[in-house]
Amino acid sequence: MFPVRDTISSHSPPLMTWALIGANCGVFLFELALPPEQLQAMFYWFGIVPARYTHPEWAMILGLPVDNYWPLLTCLFLHGGWLHLISNMWALWIFGDNVEDRMGPWRFLIFYLLCGVIAGIVHWATNLHSPVPTVGASGAVAGVMGAYLLLYPRAHIITLIPLFFYPLFVALPAATFILIWFFSQLFSGVAALLGPEQVGGVAWWAHIGGFIAGMILCKPFLDPNRRQHFYKDEFTFENAWDVALDEPKEKLKGDS
C-alpha cells in the first residue's frame, strides 16, 4: 500500500513540517556530493551504531567516541538513498501538517525529535551488538503517525494498491491504514528478533518504538490554544475524494 494523500487540510501553514523536509533534503544533497568512503564515515559518526555503546572497546579501535550521544538526533537527518528519503518525507508531508496544526510548530519540532530519539534508543536496545550504522527519519515519522492515529482516526487516506498492473486507488480510514502499517512493522520486528536473516536490514523496532512514543506523547504536546477543527471526511466516507471542509461538528450534523 502506498499513501497518496489524506483528506484533512491543515488550518494553518505547516511551517515546521516544511522546514524539516527542507533540512532532510538539504543534508541528502550534501551526502550526494561526498565520495563513498567519506559518506560511510559520516554514517558511522552521525548514525546510530548500537555496538558503539555496547562494546566501547570496539568503538575506540575505530576511533568513534563512546560518550557522544548526538547520533540519536543527527541520524534523523541522514538517509541511505533516494527511495529512503522520498518515502520518509512523503509520509511526513501527508501526516505532519495536521499533527503540527494541533501542536504548533515548536511543540511539533520537539515532539518529532523526541520520538526520533526514543526510536533510536529502542533500536539500540533491540540490536545491542550490531556494528551497522542506522540512519533515517522513519522513527520520528512513525511518531507523527502515532499522533495522527489518535487525532484523526476517522480521516481517510487515499491509498494506491497495485493490483498486478492495475493501479487501484481506495480511500481507507486513517485508523485502518495506520494500524495495518503498524502491525506489519511489528510482524517484521518479531521476525528480526527470531533471526536477522529472515528480514531485510530495516530498523523495524525503531519504527515500533517511535510509533508508540508518538501515541504516548501526543496529548502532552497539544497546544491548548489550538482548538480541534472537524472535517467533513471524518464523518462521511462518501466524501473521501473531496477537498476536506473545515466545518464545526454541529453544523455537519445539521446538514445531514
Rank of each mutant, 00 (worst) to 15 (best):
V49Y: 01
P56R: 01
L78P: 00
F187E: 14
L32W: 11
A174R: 01
V132S: 13
G200C: 07
V190H: 10
L73V: 15
F211R: 05
A206R: 00
T126A: 05
G96K: 01
A125E: 07
Q198Y: 13
M89E: 13
D97L: 02
E234G: 10
W70I: 04
E238S: 14
L34P: 03
G81Q: 11
M89I: 07
W18N: 03
R52K: 11
A240P: 02
N225K: 12
D97K: 08
Q38D: 08
C25V: 14
W82V: 14
M60Q: 15
F182W: 08
N88V: 00
T54D: 04
A119C: 10
L172C: 00
V122N: 01
Y148R: 10
M89N: 13
E238Q: 15
A140H: 01
A51L: 12
G47M: 04
G22Y: 14
F111D: 00
P173T: 06
F235L: 11
D242Q: 13
N239R: 10
P248M: 10
H79W: 04
I61K: 11
Q198C: 07
E238G: 09
G26M: 08
L150K: 14
D233I: 01
P133H: 13
L62N: 08
E57K: 15
L92F: 04
H229I: 08
V144I: 15
F187G: 12
F237K: 07
F177S: 00
P105L: 03
F43R: 14
P56M: 02
C218Q: 02
L163G: 05
K253I: 09
P35M: 05
A175Y: 12
N68W: 13
P36D: 15
